[in-house]
Design a protein around this nucleic acid. Structure first.
Lengths: 219, 219
DNA sequence: CCGCGGGTCAACCTTTTGGTTGATTGGGCC
DNA sequence: GGCCCAATCAACCAAAAGGTTGACCCGCGG
């Protein structure tokens, strides 16, 4: 266990980068060696630091990047070795905890998933865990995943999630039927099931519920 | 004109508060005198500092607060003098630039509206402007407002925005009518107008369009 | 002063959705 | 093999939403 963890910050917000820098500076054994405003810059920084013989121990990465490469893509590329370095652990630090993002990040090879409103101590522990090769999930994130596994009664099937996604784009039953190559009757059946599982009784409320429960992501 | 601007930070994210604190510490003549994690705490801080004879010159306020009083409500209360102080200028500093939030903040009495991805220099200037009693809008925000003014053909009226917001929560026409103390007929009239302006023909598509055009925020 | 547009409401009709019942198929599991 | 469940479809009826026309009031601006 190194007692000087070298960290690369990746976040498009200068304010957040400054905050993390200040926060991590208070911790013994953690050192922010570089920053990047998007995924592309992060890959470049990793390559540069590697060529200088100053490897990075942990990447602290935001998911939502205003412009440029997003965090999931960047994580995937880092883990694929596209930065030309032995892939360092990538710790996701983001604002929202929707299912889609969490699963995508884990699939891309992230070592952990933390929320920005976490207390500093939790972030420090997560960085240390990641550096040690362990995984680190925020309690809220862990709870969400456990809830999915423990209580599948109200979990939407893959097909139903697909329906909700189309629903949120404003499509009519007929349009969804055509898009999915099924009949309107089937669409209606799916919708009834969805309403039941979400505890609502119309399509707009279903969208609101699915968004709130982070089954789909908006924006 | 004081050359030592006393600032109160209001944001629920410790990381962001740390970032702003660090960022503002680099500027001459700006001093962060207190912090609050939500609107209620902000009011309490203002009252406390006032009673200590240490008034606040500018409030830097986030809009989205995980729990507790949100930024718009807090701004309104501060401007109404509920903190027991001569109301200081309130500068909104938030992540998103949707119409609904901007209008609500301005209505509540905010002196400016900045985005968190703004460069530090812009934030410093905005704080100085607010302290001097002037208004400060981020370029993106200004552009959005100008767009509304220049091309009001497809701009929703305040009432219509209100309808869309309720719509996005999944309410039925009847429920919206009750909530707004108007008849269902009026609700339907508004919806027809909204569909026309957004170029859609049903409520779910209206929600999608309004979200995409940042007329409302999702979350 | 008069028009224009926003907000309000009513009546009427058409289309879409919601809710129910029932049925078939195919995959996974004991 | 038998059972359950997701996915598919049909028919039917009730309720909600969509669309149109016409009307009234009010404030703002030419």
């Amino acid at each position: 266990m190194s007692n000087n963890i070298r960290v690369l910050l990746v976040d498009d917000h200068p304010v957040v980068r400054a905050g993390l820098r200040a926060m991590l500076a208070d911790f013994e054994g953690v050192q922010v060696v570089a920053e990047a405003a998007d995924g592309g810059a992060a890959l470049a920084e990793l390559a540069k630091l590697h060529s200088l013989g100053e490897p990075v121990d942990v990447v602290l990465m935001d998911l939502q990047m205003g412009s440029g490469m997003d965090g999931v893509t960047a994580t995937g590329k880092i883990k694929a070795g596209e930065a030309g370095t032995p892939p360092p652990p990538v710790l996701i630090l983001t604002t929202y905890d929707n299912d889609a993002d969490i699963l995508a990040a884990v699939e891309a090879g992230a070592s952990g998933y933390m929320l920005k409103d976490a207390p500093p101590e939790q972030i420090r522990e997560a960085v240390a865990s990641a550096a040690a090769g362990q995984t680190a999930l925020a309690p809220e994130v862990a709870a969400r995943l456990m809830g999915r596994i423990r209580n599948p009664v109200h979990a939407l099937s893959a097909r139903e999630v697909q329906l909700v996604e189309l629903l949120a784009t404003g499509m009519s039953n007929r349009a969804m039927a055509k898009q999915l190559f099924i009949s309107e009757a089937t669409v209606k059946t799916h919708l009834v099931h969805i309403y039941g599982k979400l505890g609502v009784d119309n399509r707009t409320a279903a969208i609101a519920a699915a968004t709130q429960r982070r089954i789909i992501r908006s924006q």
